[in-house]
Amino acid sequence: MTTMTLDAAGQTGAAQPKTVERETVDTQRKVTETVGRPLCDNAKLRMRNVNVFYGEAQAIHNVSLDIGRNEVVAMIGPSGCGKSTFLRCLNRMNDTIEGCRVEGELTLDGEPIYGPKVDVVPLRARVGMVFQKPNPFPKSIYDNVAYGPKIHGIASRRAELDEIVENSLRRAGLWNEVKDRLDKPGTGLSGGQQQRLCIARAIAVSPEVILMDEPCSALDPIATARIEELIDELRENYTIAIVTHSMQQAARVSQRTAYFHLGHLVEVNDTEMVFTNPQHELTEAYITGRFG
């Protein structure tokens, strides 16, 4: 990110006289500590002093954050602020990236996420993930949902598997739309349906945490609304961390919101607080749309 000090109003000229009056925010300045309420009592995921490096470059600086049980935490921030990187640390999806190094203490229910003895396979079964772009497997709808239970050996009989598939699709609000074409390829669904299929796939292995990396950015408003409803319903059983570009979405679905800026966690607070009464100047500048 370049310095987007907001006297950039000069470009648009006198057409928008309001912007000229705005004060300048130094978006490059050092953030030393997180304001608000980053920690909580019934933490499911606990992250302390997390630093992430891509080779020499540091992407995440000293972030500490708790994500509570049955809580939806939204992570917002301008592009490149490290919120996706941080999210991907939580189920070690960053392992596959060459030169990526994670430091700090990350635990799930008190058990370490990183460490030589940690097996990522059960970890990822416990911490599921939904990606930005819907990415169903090029298989049938049924096989998409049944894949996780199959590889983890959750269902031993066909009937059990059928039940898991149906339940997962029902929970994802997709059952009625696809029940007659379970053997059709998942890639043939619409974008919103594909994303719900991916959610169904993720919840089929009964994870404890679901990570969502901008799950609605490729969807239209109606599909987005359905996913948001779904997140609200899923909260009863799962802990959810969601990265989003849409502040409205963060406001609608989350209990707490974390604002990231250039790899620093600037502010974490109850969502209502963040959007009505931000504590930090940068947060305020971001949510009022002065940069992004």
């Binding site: 189920n91 999806m93 990822r124 993930m129 990606f131 990415n135 497997f137 894949y147 991916c198 292995v205």
Partner: peptide, 13 residues
């Protein structure tokens, strides 16, 4: 790569 990520995210070895 999205297919790999999807499978890996499901906990596939």
């Amino acid at each position: 790569p999205s297919i790999r990520e999807a499978a890996m995210g499901m906990g596939a070895s």
